[in-house]
Design a protein around this nucleic acid. Structure first.
Lengths: 162, 162
DNA sequence: ATTGTAATGTTATAATATAACAATCTAGAA
DNA sequence: TTCTAGATTGTTATATTATAACATTACAAT
């Protein structure tokens, strides 16, 4: 076995408002695009948002099947593909895991800060970093398409608590 | 089967000087540190440098065993771990693959430009990007340790040839 | 109602990675 | 030299992540 979620209550520390809000936004976005956020896909997205830390595909599967489900890996991977395609989640390459996207509405190049202690991931956008990368790319004659920027380190809390 | 190396001749297009030079540098670096670059580890490093594009662990294994070797996966992974530890190679997370490090001598935070057409990877360092990331991290109270920056896109040649 | 497409179910397997323990090698101490 | 402790490599088995291939079901547009 293996679980990446160190058993915190979820991304929002209050009541679940953040999960609900993310799902509502996802519904709206899919409605706009004529994409079908089916119950299965919605459930996968919900599971991902409920977790504090990124979840691996098999972590998601485990949660889906927790109450007697009998889903198989392809089911999860297909849902994840759909969510990725629509920018509703990101895959953290360095962790083989998935997180909800906080800014799915607008296309963007995300930068992640990943705490090695608590596992928390925060997604940010930075004009300056984007510009610096574009500049470096241009100098190399390179055309940027899909940047993967995952900064591992320690978040404020974990750094303070040492 | 699967192979990431699209059968080009190797990273250097002339004669192998670049592979040899990388190996010499590696030997020197290990000598300095009292680390043992054994024939096996040296061979793995050589295989990686001989490839134009990043190689997966099993690609390396295949090449090691091409002439009758009988090595098993742990052998390769252990050699890769050693080479990673000493900064002689990098792992490209978004490709589950490994490339030789062009700057193993000095500790650095690498930025990779990865061409989706030809598979070529070029490693660069950018003061500006490092600074932009530090700035963004500081603002978030985050302590940067291990940045993963892998920019996928198209290199000059592949962009020109379209 | 029919029908073509999208979505899901199901089985099997590919591709990547590591655990656990045995055997061997190497450098330094005795 | 011989011995020994630790590092390296060998070997077997298995965990983890991901996808191929084909069957079935659901849905939307005619």
């Amino acid at each position: 076995m293996k679980s990446r979620d160190k058993n915190f209550s979820g991304r929002d520390h209050e009541n679940g408002a953040c999960v609900e809000s993310a799902l509502e936004q996802a519904e709206a976005l899919c409605r706009d695009r004529g994409a079908r956020l089916t119950p299965l896909r919605r459930r996968v997205l919900e599971i991902i948002w409920e977790s504090r830390a990124p979840l691996g595909a098999y972590d998601v599967l485990e949660r889906m099947n927790a109450e007697g489900g009998r889903n198989a890996p392809p089911t999860v991977y297909r849902a994840l593909d759909f969510l990725l395609k629509h920018g509703l989640i990101h895959r953290i390459e360095s962790q083989k895991a998935f997180v909800g996207c906080a800014m799915s509405a607008d296309a963007h190049h995300a930068l992640f800060f990943i705490c090695r202690d608590c596992g928390n991931v925060s997604e940010t956008q930075s004009e300056a970093i984007g510009a610096a990368i574009e500049a470096s790319a241009t100098r190399a004659g390179f055309l940027v398409e899909t940047p993967v920027m995952e900064i591992s380190g320690r978040c404020q809390e974990c750094h303070d608590d040492e």
